[in-house]
Every structure is written in structure tokens, then in C-alpha cells.
Deep mutational scan, measured.
Amino acid sequence: MAEAPPRRLGLGPPPGDAPRAELVALTAVQSEQGEAGGGGSPRRLGLLGSPLPPGAPLPGPGSGSGSACGQRSSAAHKRYRRLQNWVYNVLERPRGWAFVYHVFIFLLVFSCLVLSVLSTIQEHQELANECLLILEFVMIVVFGLEYIVRVWSAGCCCRYRGWQGRFRFARKPFCVIDFIVFVASVAVIAAGTQGNIFATSALRSMRFLQILRMVRMDRRGGTWKLLGSVVYAHSKELITAWYIGFLVLIFASFLVYLAEKDANSDFSSYADSLWWGTITLTTIGYGDKTPHTWLGRVLAAGFALLGISFFALPAGILGSGFALKVQEQHRQKHFEKRRMPAANLIQAAWRLYSTDMSRAYLTATWYYYDSILPSFRELALLFEHVQRARNGGLRPLEVRRAPVPDGAPSRYPPVATCHRPGSTSFCPGESSRMGIKDRIRMGSSQRRTGPSKQHLAPPTMPTSPSSEQVGEATSPTKVQKSWSFNDRTRFRASLRLKPRTSAEDAPSEEVA
């Protein structure tokens, strides 16, 4: 009796068929016929556990003709996506030579605008209408194809895939403007070719909807975003200037109206006075309405000098805001240009540092100066060695804690006790272990408590650290204090090793 083939788990290929790579489910599931010992083939499952149809090819690079078809379809799909992405970037994010197409579109729109203006002049109306009709045909074809291509290429973005995504893309403001202008152009052409009475009025009214094509030149909205950011950044200043200017306008108009309503027919109503105030304070000055009385002229002159300053403030605020924003954008561009080279330089330096163990090129690091100058660790070890030599091999803490019996001779020589300023008595072995921070803190506390006492003391002649007598400086308080830590004499004296002298005989010792 033939044995059933062993159940295979995992992703390994079956024996005897090495080139074939078959994806098997996580659990080997066989058909009921196979479990019962029949000759049925096992049921194939996909990666998600769903059964595959009987005629479906197995996924994998070596699955025969199905694999070749899959490779061809995958390559075609990649080319399709690449083309779609390229078209989308050309239309929505132009760079380099892609601006040539947008310059061509701008020339078409500008020519249409010029011809629309010439069509309103009686001398050039006939020729402009003929040229404009031909140009409209060209623009309908160009913009119609462009609109379709834009909607198709938007599928390269995830949020615009599918018919719902394309509809979302078509609802964008600039796409809506394109659609309105396209419909208006078709209506103008249809009305112009019919030759009816309505054609002339339709051409004159709907052609100027094509002015909206100038708005579509900035599809990404960079200028509007820049203007919005400047207004938002200086909103408080703008609101303040406009508010005060509006108050000056209504008060000036009302007072001039009261002064001129009886003697001047131009100011017969408050609305006429508001019109005069707006034209005057905005420095336009049509001259259609002028005050005639001396009181009205004085009020107009005073409020004009006051109001023009507030009406001119928004222009200066926006101008300075634009300058600052442009400078910030230039700085951001320079930062973006330098970020990648800086990151590459840091990575290269780290690779060199991690692979080169000698690091002989590091001549400006802490390790280099640590090898030249005595390190703080060596100074600490030197302090501890000196203290243990004086205390008979014991550390200062051990000397303080060691009990001394009554009447027993002390094995240590008597030492002079010292007192730290602002604290109780402490171990004499710690007097010379006072660090730089303690010395600086002690000097600052003395300056806070009594700076007036220092200038009363007789001035001391500054001497070099080499000429100081070591026996005289029994305490860190003898170090000359200065008002600034930048004094080199104080810094050098604080680094010197001060020996400890006994109370009975204080021989001067120098520590090399």
C-alpha cells in the first residue's frame, strides 16, 4: 500500500521540484479525499487562508506561464504608474523644462484676455472677434484635454484613487474654476456660431469669465498662502490700524457733515460726507466734493493729517511682513540645501571615528588635552595620597570615625582645627580638600554678606603664586578674593596644593 505523501509545513519547496517556489498556508490543510486516503489533490490556500480556484496559477517567480503573465502585467503596471506620476508632476508640480508648457498656457490665456479687451473697442471689434473665435476653439481643445489628463493623473495619489477620489480631486477650487471656464468657452462658441440675436450679448458677457483663467496660473496657491501667512502673522497690528482709521473716518465725516450741510449742497446727507471722507483719507482725492466753510476746511485738514497716518499703516505693516517672510523662506531654502550635506558629513565622520582606533588626527579633542595637561583624576589621586601619608595610611573619614581611648597616647600629631565659614567644625583632613566650587561659593557668600568690609582692609600687593609662602596660607580663606572669576591669580592660587600645619609646630611643606 502506497504511503501518503508527508504533510509539508512552511514555505519550503517540495523535494524533486527545486526551481518551484510555492506559497503554502501556515497550517497544512488537505482535502477530505486526501485525509481519507483517496487520490485527491490537496486544496490550495492563499496567504489569508482563502481557498484558491482550481485553475488559478500559483503565485511565485517560477510558476510557469502564469508567472510570465504576472511579470508582464507587473511591468506594465509599473510603467503605467510611472507615467501617471510623471504627468501629475508636470501639471501640478512643474520643475525644470516642465515650465515651458505652463508658459505656453499663460501666453494663450493672456492673448485671449487681450483680444477680449480689444473686442470692446469699436475700431478693432470685428478683427478681434474673428481672432478670438479661432483662439477659443484652440483653448477649448487644449483645456478640455488638460482637464481630463489632470483628473486621470491624480490617481497617482492615494487620496485621489478610484471614482470617489477623482470626484474629490474635481471638487478642488482650481478644478472648479477650470470647469466653469470650459463651460463658458463652449457656451460662447455655441452662441457665436448660431448667428442669432443673442450671440452678441452672450459673447460680450461670458467672454470675461475667461479672466478666471489668470487665476489658474498659480494652481498651488503659493501667492495666496504667502499673503495669508503675512496677514495672520500681523493680524493684531492690522486690526488696530484699521480700527483707529475707521473711527477717524466716521468722526471726521460726521463733523464735516454738521459744518457743511447748510452751506454746501455736496454734503446734503451723511452718506455724501462718508464718501468724501473715504476718498480723502485714502489719499485718492477725486475733487467732486470739497468743503466751502472755514470750519469745514479746518476739520477736514486736521482729520486728514490724523487719519492718513492710520490708513497708511497697513501698507507699511504688510510690506515689512512680506520682507520678513521672504527672508525666512530664503533662510529655509539654505537650511534645506545644507541639511543633507551636513548629515552626510556627520555620518562619514562617525564611520571614520568608529573604524580608526588610533585617531591620531583628533588634535583638538579632550583626549588630546588630557594627555598634555594633568587630568583631574590625577589631581584627586594626588590629594588622596598626600592625605593618607599624613594620616598614617588612613583616609580622612576613617580618621574622624576612629575612637580614641581616654589616657591613651595619640598616634597622630595634634592638628589645628579649622572652621569653614557658615558651618560647624569639620575634620581637619578636609581643609585642604576644598575644591574650586567651594572656594568660589565661599567668595560669593563673603561678597553678599559684607562687601563694604573688603574695601576697608589695607590693599594687598598682588604677587605671583611662585613667590607666595606656603606656610602662610594655612586656610583657603587666605586666598585673595576677587569680584570676578576671570582673575588668573585667584584661579592659579585655588589650584595650588595647600599643606596642613599642626598647632604646635607648623613646618612648611611643599608638595611638588
Rank of each mutant, 00 (worst) to 15 (best):
E3D: 08
P5A: 12
R8P: 03
R8G: 06
L9R: 05
L9P: 07
G12D: 09
P14R: 03
P19S: 13
R20C: 05
L23R: 10
T27R: 02
T27P: 08
A28P: 09
A28D: 07
A28T: 12
Q30K: 01
Q30L: 14
Q33R: 11
A36G: 02
G39D: 02
G40A: 02
P42L: 04
R44C: 12
L45I: 13
L45H: 08
L45F: 09
L48Q: 14
S50G: 14
P54A: 08
G55A: 02
G62V: 08
G62R: 09
S63Y: 15
G64A: 11
G64D: 08
S65W: 01
S65T: 15
C69Y: 07
S74A: 12
S74L: 12
A76S: 13
H77D: 11
H77P: 15
R81H: 11
N85T: 06
N85Y: 05
N85I: 09
V90G: 01
R93G: 07
R95C: 10
G96A: 03
G96S: 08
G96D: 02
A98G: 14
V100G: 08
Y101F: 09
V103I: 10
V103F: 02
F104L: 11
F106S: 04
L107F: 00
V109F: 06
F110S: 12
S111C: 10
C112Y: 09
C112G: 11
C112F: 03
L113R: 00
V114G: 08
V114M: 07
V114A: 06
S116F: 01
L118Q: 11
I121F: 07
E123V: 04
H124N: 03
H124R: 04
Q125E: 06
Q125L: 08
L127V: 06
E130A: 06
C131Y: 06
L132P: 00
L133P: 00
E136A: 00
F137L: 14
M139V: 02
I140F: 08
I140M: 03
V141E: 00
G144D: 02
I148S: 02
A154S: 02
C157Y: 05
R159C: 15
Q164R: 10
R168G: 11
K172N: 01
K172Q: 00
F174Y: 01
F174C: 13
F179S: 14
F182L: 10
S185T: 13
S185A: 10
V188L: 00
A191G: 02
A191P: 01
Q194P: 00
G195R: 01
G195C: 15
N196Y: 00
N196S: 00
I197T: 10
A199S: 15
T200S: 14
S201T: 13
L203Q: 13
S205N: 14
S205I: 14
F208Y: 00
F208C: 00
F208L: 04
L209Q: 00
I211M: 07
I211T: 00
R213G: 00
R216H: 00
M217L: 11
D218Y: 04
D218V: 06
R219G: 00
S229A: 02
K236E: 01
A241S: 02
L247M: 01
I250L: 09
F254V: 00
L258Q: 02
A259T: 05
D262N: 04
S265T: 03
D266H: 10
T278A: 08
T278M: 00
L295P: 00
A301G: 05
L305I: 11
L305F: 02
I308V: 10
I308S: 09
F311Y: 07
I317V: 12
G319C: 15
A323S: 15
V326D: 12
Q332E: 12
I346V: 04
I346M: 04
